[in-house]
Structures are given as structure tokens and as C-alpha cells.
Design a protein around this nucleic acid. Structure first.
Lengths: 267, 267
DNA sequence: TAGTGGTCTAGACCACGGC
DNA sequence: CCGTGGTCTAGACCACTAT
């Protein structure tokens, strides 16, 4: 007989994952679990709490009790690539109708740059730089939202002051390409992290859902050296979104491939 | 004065994030916190527990107490793209020296396919398919490891039976391209999830670290319709790794871009 | 109003690890 | 050994929500 919170949680976890308990189904109450497993109510509560922190169950409040969370059957896939319309470049065709979250504003500030972003720009952490932060999303689907912070390299601002203005992001890439007379190279780096309480609140994240983080760098060549002119830090729910990229064929993998000669295998 | 576990945790969180408490520094003990904030030991413990589940602190055991976690200064960036050497295709040049984790084996089974993977293959969840699972990593850096599950489409196995054999993955892409007489299209979809207890154990993940999940599909055209012949499901620590992709220019964003005519703005 | 989980106090004992 | 966090019992009171 299960006696510890961990063991009780494991039993319930199995019942959920086997499908015996379906999304929306009620879990036994703390008191019922305490009775069944002959433990204290606190112990039963700890078991439920473990499942809640894993994102498997949620508390519906009052009499409704604790239920198995409805989890989105499929994530919204965001195919990544740069496109443009008559207003300029944009990324992600399927979120073009997204707008600023109601009650929020784009904040343009000059502030010390955090260490992780500084690494991409190749400048000292703490250097004051121009940052543009906003929260936007689908007006029809409140949970579909993201946070976007844009950080500009001081050299880029010095060269093209207009990009530090409060205008939308759309135009800055055109201004940069005009000034440096070359195409921007964009790359995206993806990782994940557990949200800070602030981020969880802003993105309406329930407990147990990580943050998917897409960091896009915009690079131009100056005197033969790469200069990262902007870092775009996008955070979204990892439960609701995924990002997709085509995989490029590099070097010897370019099509049509040249079959290796027999020599390779004997050398 | 802070009186609740949440408030005490917030104070400690600030002291960590401001840099007052450095990685490796000891936090106040539960008893010290209980004293300082005039709360019960259990309340102080709850505060420390919150920070532990966020991955900010860790318990070093016994007298060593609770300390601020050393977090990797930078993630290992894995530039994604397909390459090949004389053995065949591979992805990720910087992990070519990775090997099977000692004490584990590649498992080749035929088992019911989970719903999420079935979606990529376009087959019914639960259909028995050939799966190949392994855990590999850097022999020199124990924490640098990943789990890789490969799922083969039954039609692909029927057409090219040799790919279901127990040989390594390297060759299957060549066999598929030979048989279908065309290049494979690879795409990767990235998301994140909190690890199951099994995954956390296999990847040595401390609490509070999400799993970065890269799902690669291999697609060929059969009778003009796309057939996903294989799904490769790669999971790794989101704290230790990130993945990077070049961003492609699509449609009107192709270089050199054609400046929009004035008509667009007035229409 | 009744039943649910949330949180706090209080006290006991255990497991672990450095001293 | 002894101080650390881990966990359990026990009991109290609160906040929220459906009835």
C-alpha cells in the first residue's frame, strides 16, 4: 500500500497516463486520498501538489475540486522564415493578425543589457542599450501570446539613428540594409527555460509549463567582420507552440550527393 | 515583514538575481529563516522548496545545506543542418564524438506508436511500428547527453525492409533515397516540455530544468504526395543546450528585394 | 451553506554528509 | 557526532465556488 506522497502521486500519475482518468475528470479529494491510503491530509495534499507542479492536474476552485488538465491536443506550429509585405520584413506568416495585448504598450527604454543578450551582441554586460519590449497575441485566443524584447547594438544605433525611434519594428531591417548596402543574415537559436513569475503571469502560463525561447540575431558584415545589429528575444508557452525549420544540406550533403568511393572505406 | 512562504521566497529570489547571493553561496537555513521572519520551520521550508523547484538553489546534503545553484554560463549551441561523411548522413557536427551512454543499449522494438508521433507519420495512434531508442552523449562530459527515439513509417519499412534492421541509423537515409530515387526533405520542429521522472533520471536533470525536444521528420514524395518515412524524437536538457538554424528568406523577402512601389502605401 | 484546496503552526522522527 | 533538509502526523483557520 502506498504510504508516501511520492507513491500516491505515482499511482495517480499512472491512472492519468493510462487514460483511466480523462482530461476534465475529477481526482479524489485530499480527504478521500487520506482515507484511502491511511495518511494525513497534508500528505495527500503533497501528492496532489506534485501533480499540479507537473502540469498534469489543476485546481478548479471550491467545490469543483482538482481535475485532470485539458491539454492542447496539438501545438500551433510556427514555420519560421523571413517574409515581406509592402510594409517590410516580418517573420511567421501565421501570426500576422496578432496585436498588442490589450492594456499593454510597447516600451522603448535605454537600459543595462543582461549578460545573456550581451553575449550575442558581443558587448559588455550592463552596457546601456536601446530596448523595445512588447506583449502581443491573437485577439481571438487569449492564451496565444508571446513576449518580444528587441535589443539594438549601440554601433547600429550610432550608424542608423532612426532605428532607435519608437516606430514599429517593421522598418528597421530595411533601414539597416539600406545603410550597410547588404542583406541581413538572420539566425534563430531556440532553447527553453522555466518562466519567472512575471513571465508566467504575462503569458497566462499554468504551473508546470516551460517557456519556449527563440532568439533571433540580425547580422551584417562591417569591414569584413560580422556585426550583430539586433537581438530579438521571443518567449512563448512551450505547451501551446512549437517552431519549425527546414534543415539545410551542408557540404557533402548537398544534393545530388556524390557516392563515396570504395577507397574511403578501406582507408 | 514577509510572513508567507511566497514572500520569503521572493526576498531570497531577489537576493540571488541581484547577485548578492552568488552561485555556490549558502542560503540561510530553514531554522534561520523561521527565526528571522518569525514563522514556523515548515513555512521556511516551503519557501526554500519553491526556489528549488525553480532550479535556483539545490540542497547539497547534510551540513552543506542549501546553496545557489551553479548554472552553466552558456549553453552549448548546436547548429542544425544535415551533413555527410563516408559513412552517410548525420546531423550536428559538434557531437560526432558522442557515444552510447555506458551501460545502455540501442533498443529496437515494434511497439504501439504514441499519439503525438503518430500525428507526424499520419497513421493511427497505437499502430505497431518499428522504434529504435538510444541514449548517447559525450564520454568526457557526463551531463552532455540526449535521448533519441526513431520511429519508422510502416509503408517505408514495407518498401525498404532493410531499414528496420538493427544497423545504426547512418545508412537508412541512403537506402531510402536510393529506393525512392529522390532527396529526402528534412524538417525539424522544436518545443519543450517538463521531463517525466524517467527522462529526468536518464538525462541527469536537476529539478526545475525543462526538456528541449527536437522532432525531425524525413519526407519523400510518393505518387505526388508527401510520405513521412521517419520521425526522430531527440530530447536534451534545455539548460545545457540550444539549437540554431539559419533563417530562410521566403517569397518577397528573397534577396535582392524589390522595393514596394508608392502605390502600395496609398491603396 | 457546504465542500474543496491553501496555508500556517507545532512537534516528531528520519536520512544524509561533513566534522 | 550533530546540523542540515525531508517527511509525516495533527489541528486550525482561510478563500473560493458551486449549490
Amino acid at each position: 500500500m502506498a504510504r508516501t506522497a511520492e507513491e500516491i502521486a505515482a499511482v495517480l500519475r499512472d491512472r492519468i497516463q493510462s487514460g483511466e482518468l480523462q482530461p476534465g475528470d475529477r481526482l479524489p479529494t485530499m480527504d478521500a486520498l487520506a482515507d484511502e491510503y491511511e495518511v494525513n491530509r497534508q500528505t495527500a495534499r503533497t501528492a496532489l501538489n506534485l501533480l499540479k507542479n507537473e502540469g498534469l492536474v489543476e485546481y478548479k476552485g471550491g467545490r469543483a475540486g482538482t481535475v485532470v488538465r485539458e491539454r492542447p491536443a496539438a501545438r500551433m506550429v510556427r514555420s519560421r522564415g523571413m517574409e515581406r509585405d509592402n510594409l517590410g520584413y516580418y517573420s511567421g506568416a501565421n501570426v500576422q493578425h496578432w496585436r498588442l495585448i490589450e492594456g499593454t504598450q510597447t516600451e522603448v527604454t535605454t537600459e543595462p543589457i543582461p549578460a545573456d543578450i550581451a553575449g550575442y551582441l558581443g558587448i559588455e554586460p550592463g552596457t546601456p542599450v536601446v530596448a523595445r519590449k512588447r506583449a502581443n497575441g491573437d485577439p481571438e485566443v487569449p492564451a496565444h501570446r508571446q513576449l518580444t524584447d528587441s535589443w539594438l547594438h549601440p554601433e547600429a544605433v550610432a550608424a542608423v539613428p532612426v532605428i532607435a525611434g519608437s516606430s514599429g519594428l517593421g522598418g528597421i531591417y530595411d533601414r539597416i540594409e539600406e545603410h550597410f548596402e547588404q542583406p541581413i543574415l538572420w539566425e534563430e537559436e531556440i532553447t527553453a527555460i522555466n518562466p519567472s513569475p512575471d513571465e508566467a503571469a504575462a503569458l497566462l502560463l499554468p504551473p508546470g509549463v516551460p517557456l519556449l525561447r527563440v532568439i533571433r540575431t540580425s547580422t551584417v558584415k562591417v569591414d569584413g567582420r560580422p556585426l550583430v545589429v539586433e537581438v530579438n528575444d521571443i518567449r512563448m508557452s512551450a505547451e501551446l507552440f512549437s517552431v519549425r525549420y527546414p534543415m539545410t544540406r551542408k557540404g557533402a550533403a548537398r544534393w545530388p550527393v556524390q557516392p563515396a568511393s570504395a577507397d574511403f572505406y578501406t582507408s
